[in-house]
Amino acid sequence: MRQVLDAITAGATGHRAICEHTGLGPGMVEAALHQLERMNMLEREEIGSACPSDGCGSCGSASTCVAPATGRGPVFLTLRRRTD
């Protein structure tokens, strides 16, 4: 896990980059990222759409919406700065 964290801090962006940086297999990298997220050290952020998560009905711009409709966006995990 420490290797994966170091890789992220060093600027690796993406599974393949972390694997190359750490020498770990894809499965190990995936598992480490999953655990880091569970430990609240990585924050998941989906940016597939600019729309409210509860749909168009709650949006004041529904009648004039020009936000992307396809919602095919990436998922980001961001390092969370620890306060302790």
């Binding site: 690796a12 993406g14 990222l33």
Partner: peptide, 11 residues
């Protein structure tokens, strides 16, 4: 906070 992001999943 500015932090580096890690891209995981792209369509």
């Amino acid at each position: 906070m500015g932090s580096s992001a890690l891209v995981l999943d792209l369509p």
